[in-house]
Structures are given as C-alpha cells and as structure tokens.
Design a protein around this nucleic acid. Structure first.
Lengths: 190, 190
DNA sequence: GACAGCGTGGCAGCTTGCTGCCAGACTGGC
DNA sequence: GCCAGTCTGGCAGCAAGCTGCCACGCTGTC
C-alpha cells in the first residue's frame, strides 16, 4: 500500500514507536509531499531526535504538536486512511477505510492540528530561545511599537546599543525582518 | 441518538448550516460538556453570531479555528462519530461509525484542533481584524521575512502597491511598527 | 603595570521602509 | 459619451533601520 502513494502522505502519531519510522527514508518517492506530526513524546530519546532530523533533512516536513494526538493516523492521497490504537498484549488494532467523507473529515482535522503545530527545527531552535532577562525590556519596547529613539531613551541606553540589542534578539529568534521577529515572539507568547 | 448523550458532545463544522444549530438549545441536558468548533465562516452573518453567543451563554463552549475544518464532524461520548460532507444536489453524505480506534483517533485530532482555536468571546474581544483573503499572502510574505522587494515580486505587484498593502494590514492590526504588527499577528495565530 | 576580553557609544554610510503626489487603467452608473 | 470612485504604479524625498569601524571604560588575570 505504501508503495502506491502518488500525491501526498500525511501522518499523525504520538511517537516514533510506529510504522512511521520505516517508510520514510527510502520507500517514498522523492518530491512527494510528506507531513508528519508528532507530540513532544517523539523527542524524548536522542535516537528519535536524530531520526527526525534525518527525515526532515530529506524533505519530510515534521512538526510537533503540543496537543495530544491520536495514537497513529495515516492518510494517503486523501483517499486511504489508517487509524491505529496503542499496542496491547493481543497486538494493535487497526482500521483502514476509504470512505470519502471519513477521510476528508479527518484530513481537515489533521490540517487544523498541523497548522497549529510548530516546525521541528523551529521547535528545537525556539524551545524558548535562550533570551536573557536583559532581552525582555527590548522585546517589550518593540512590542509596544516604539521607535528605536524613544525605546533607547526608555531603556536608558544609546541608539546604537539599543539597535545592537534588537539585532541580537533577531538573531536569537532567527528572524530576517522585524516583522518576522515579532511574529515569532508573538506566536511563542512573548 | 442525540437524546442518548451522556458524557460529552463535541462537534466541528465549517459553519452553522448544519445539524448543529438545532440540538444545542434545549435537547441537550444541562451540565453536559458540549464543545463546538467552527471556522470564521460561522461568524459572517449577524444571526449566526447572535446564535453562537446565545448557545455560548448557555454553557456550550464555542471556539473558532483559523484553520479549515471538516465540513461537519460530531462525536458523542467518544463512542459514536458522525462525519458529514457538504450538501450536494443528491443530498448530503453521512458516515456513522462506532469503531473505537476511528472514534478515538478523530477525537484526539479534534482535541488538537480545539486546543489551537480561540474562545468565541476572546475572538470577539480580540477584534480579530477582518483581514481580507487578499491580506493573507502579504502576511505570509512578511512572516517569511522577505524584503519588500522580493515580496512584491512574489506577489506580482509593484513595490509601491505591496507597501500599501502592508500599511493597510498594519492599520487593521492597529500597529505602529512592523514588529508590533508581527507580534499581534503571531499572537493571534496568523 | 600590562594585557586581553567585553560591553558601550559615536560616527558614517548604506539599505530599507514609508508616504504624499500624480497619472493611468478599469468599473459602474447616469 | 462623461463622470466619479477605486485600484494601481512610478517618482521623490524623508524617516527609520542596520552595520562596520574605532575609541573609551570596565573587569579580571598574569
């Protein structure tokens, strides 16, 4: 079944203790949009983190959701859907369906959860980017929409220094523009 | 079926043009946890807004998701699930299932989408700025950290026009600086 | 004391963002 | 047709932001 993927492969799972570990590296044709959504539980072990980085570097889009996820859900080409339960002594329970309303509905829910999740690298990088307490007032001034002039005055530093602080902050937030920095900061809740 | 609800009633839908309008007001016993998740499409008409406020005031928890949602999904007591497609000339398609793995999986996805959504009153209070669909690509370009030059090229408009769009967006977001605009946008989830 | 390391501030010059003004293109109504 | 309204793009000029360079002062170490 996995070989037949044509358009899209998406998967949501609690962790890597699933089928998901296998198909990605080579079974899937390159260029295919693959999205995998996990909970932070998938980041506990170092091998898992490594594996995630690897598949991400191969073009698989990986995101981490802070909300609980189904144990495992796979949707192929918006056509076939597999839902799995947790492992039990008697094995795991699977359900495979192709009913369009079911698959379509779950796909939309997946998309909503996906949109709310954060990219893997952003998650690593942003996991509360190490912002000194000194960065806080800068963030505040920026978020208040002050100009650099007034912000520098408020903080009691020179314009040059203030801008240096801002540049540092943007580096930490991995942002290319002030808007992007603000966006990141806002998304992370200050 | 709706009368038999015991523990929980959750529903996700694009708008109010669904079954969801009816059962809530009186058919559902008081004290039952009811959660309803909609897209902003449910807020377009004034009657719909009023209806949502009413059911919210009766204890139904209503949230708005900025991501697309399935046309309609209902889960009762984590036991029964109904997925519906959009209306077609031949009627609407429904799927009813009680398979535990299916229901459990979808319930978890629903929970993830729910967590990412914002409460109805917060949504009203926060005055989620009425951003035209035309504002979206601008927001995306800004959030991607592009310069105005490249952003304008990507959108296929002139530099002047792009900047006008940005200025409009900032007005809608009530922001004095680009950072502040980004911050607002990020905090509101794009 | 001499030295390195670090943060700060001033200066200069460049890039980018921002906006007012005007001109052209298009639409809808009379 | 003509006219108003709206959207667009170019131009120009200003404001804001960014950064490299150098100098000063502080701290700690040898």
């Amino acid at each position: 079944m996995f070989e037949g993927v044509r358009d899209e492969f998406v998967c949501a799972a609690v962790d890597l203790d699933t089928w998901s570990r296998r198909p990605a590296p080579n079974r899937i044709p390159t260029g295919l949009p693959v999205r995998k959504l996990f909970t932070p539980a998938a980041l506990i072990g170092e091998p898992d983190r490594l594996h995630l980085r690897q598949i991400a570097s191969k073009g698989v889009r990986v995101r981490i959701s802070s909300s609980p996820l189904p144990y495992e859900t796979i949707i192929i080409d918006r056509r076939v859907m597999i839902l799995a339960g947790a492992a039990t002594p008697t094995g795991r329970q699977y359900t495979v369906t192709t009913a369009p309303t079911l698959v379509g509905g779950v796909h939309a829910l997946f998309a909503a959860a996906w949109d709310a999740a954060t990219d893997l690298d952003a998650y690593f990088r942003a996991e509360i980017p190490h912002l000194d307490p000194a960065d806080r007032p800068v963030l505040r001034a920026l978020a208040d929409g002050l100009t650099d002039q007034t912000a520098a005055r408020r903080l009691g530093v020179s314009l040059r220094t203030y801008r240096r602080r801002v540049a540092d902050l943007m580096t930490k937030l991995n942002a290319d523009s002030r808007f992007q920095a603000g966006h990141r900061a806002g998304a992370l809740g200050l």
